[in-house]
Design a protein around this nucleic acid. Structure first.
Lengths: 342, 342
DNA sequence: TTGTGTCGTGAGAGCGCTCTCATATCTCGG
DNA sequence: CCGAGATATGAGAGCGCTCTCACGACACAA
């Protein structure tokens, strides 16, 4: 339908290719009269510059990649990643970049994806989810020359640019809250071992306990993997230790844990109080509304894109780190409201 | 790190650029001896062909776009779309295509996205979610010359290629099941008005009722919008009409409806039986395991990619339609097991 | 020997842009 | 009226590939 080139438009208007190019790229060195004529021709013909030719000549593709490693694909049912992806997509929309999505499904994909990522001239930069135990891709990526930023603090953050939520502070916030309300046996359900998120949230939890002069009871720390079932199972174990409050490292796990609590006939928050993490809409699926730590996931994605674009345009040295704050949202599951303490 | 060109490799090996190109593209017209030498040089240097140059010269980018219209973004918390996206991503991995994701966030995006999509030389083909009421983008896209396939039957499917699940048949299956077990007042909670999915599932529901000689009671059809809350609200309305079974057009809505049923102290399936739709993992979030229609969402995504690739490689005429089957998964919420009828 | 065919390789013209540099035109102070 | 400086436009060399065509080398039948 539309196989016009710059040259065609130029001929149509009676100017040189270069001039049309200037108009398209918003160069100021074009007289208003000529600019108008060119724009008119472009409008009337519906001309669209060829992306590949542009990329080849300018060495800029205006595309960025988002890589979600294999460990993530499993969690794709957790609303966190879809929402993050959405935030990143919106960030791209804002800045007129195109988003390429790379989901690693299996071992085989993992090997094939790196060459795809580093095809020169294809991506201006790469965003990659990190902080998970299998950070092989990340090392390889950083060895390449393409600008890249990590989402979530990597295991070895030296010299890398990344964006993250202050998980230590956030977990501390949640635990502080439970302490302040007056709970004594505060348990926690953690994420999978080895990830920085998990480590940070445990650190915040312990920091709050210590701050209030309490000892850490290992038996009150149960491991999950961010899935609903893992929360359910972790809670089963915790119930034997009789906690009066639980800080779950994700809302989904909190939902599972709450299911386990209800099954044995206990009430929330009367018998066991809950604070979750994420503030995902699913909160309504649990019969009691969940007190939680709200992560600005969407904004997080948008900022990640901005970080990457900054890296692309201004170079990657020195590396940049962005740490965003999370916020405590008090609802019913922690019991604060009933105590008149909200 | 790696700014080599074809020419460099050619010089290194002592052959012409063309020969190296042939090796890379797997042409048979290269002697085994030369091929080996070229491959060796490529291996040793870590050479990667420049994607933009390739695209420009060959008019093929090996990239496809996935467009999720605005109405979808709202639903992105529903696991359906993330899973679909995942399926499509895997399909791309399988065939060495790169996936570009276009999420429409607002009215403004909607206008900016079409030019981005139709940038020539950028995408080999486009997959777009359709069947929603605001199919403006779809019309515009089909007016362009770029190969495209719809996901979900469009409102006006003439001349278009699309892939869909047989929603009529699937809803009929669900309703038949409830009828066979012996329920009499079978209600349904539908998706949003105007979408083809909604229309099809209602049609299947009614078809099953008619087939068994029953009349359609309008009051037993309540509208939702695929969200949990809408299921909850719809059920509130339906409760007054005293149904003994409900077919919900999505699992998420079923979850909401179940919440409403429990709130008034009724039991599932004893007082009200349920069949959902989708078979998403969240089924475990409802306390009773949900009988549902399983959609092969992941496979659906993979097939969609294959359809599009076929279109790209073999032309778009005649348009192709793929209709996939769904399957009834019997669990506890329909009561069949208790009746020994599974 | 000559002609016909096959096979591997080289040559070179694009693909449709961007960007630097040269050139033409205009402005204005002295 | 001239020349310096600013400004608008044209010219043309790439960007790094693909692909068609031409050509030399060799095999084999007549």
């Amino acid at each position: 339908m539309n196989e016009l080139t710059l040259e065609d438009i130029a001929k149509l208007v009676g100017v040189h290719r270069s001039t049309v190019s200037r108009v398209i790229n918003g160069s100021p060195k074009v007289s208003p009269e000529v600019r108008e004529r060119v724009l008119k021709a472009i409008r009337e013909t519906g001309y669209q510059p060829n992306a590949a030719a542009r990329t080849l000549a300018s060495q800029r593709s205006w595309m960025i990649g988002l890589v979600l490693p294999r460990s993530v694909s499993v969690f794709f049912t957790d609303p966190y990643f879809p929402q993050l992806t959405q935030g990143i997509a919106f960030g791209c929309n804002n800045h007129d970049y195109t988003l390429c999505l790379f989901l690693v499904g299996n071992k085989e994909d993992e090997e094939k994806i790196l060459p795809r990522l580093s095809r020169r001239g294809m991506l201006d930069g790469i965003l990659i989810q990190s902080g998970t135990p299998d950070d092989i891709l990340i090392d390889q990526l950083n060895a390449s020359s393409i600008p890249s930023a990590m989402i979530g603090r990597p295991n070895e953050p030296e010299g890398l640019s990344y964006i993250d939520v202050d998980n230590v502070r956030a977990a501390e916030l949640a635990t502080d809250h439970l302490i302040n309300i007056g709970y004594h046996r505060i348990a926690t359900i953690t994420g999978p071992k080895g990830s920085t998120v998990t480590a940070d949230r445990i650190e915040g939890y312990q920091k709050a306990l210590k701050k209030s002069g309490r000892s850490i009871e290992k038996a009150l720390i149960a491991q999950g993997d961010f899935s609903e079932v893992s929360g359910y199972n972790a809670m089963k174990v915790l119930l034997a230790k009789q906690p009066d409050a639980v800080f779950a490292a994700s809302d989904i796990m909190a939902a599972g844990a709450i299911r386990a609590v209800k099954e044995v006939g206990l009430k929330i928050p009367e018998d066991i109080a809950f604070v979750g993490f994420d503030d995902i809409p699913l909160g309504t699926l649990t019969t009691v509304s969940l007190t939680t730590i709200r992560q600005p996931i969407l904004k997080f994605g948008v900022r990640a894109v901005e970080l990457l674009i900054d890296l692309i345009e201004n170079g990657t040295t020195p590396p940049q780190q962005i740490i965003m704050d999370a916020e405590l949202i008090i609802r019913d599951s922690c019991g604060a409201k009933k105590l008149g303490m909200s």
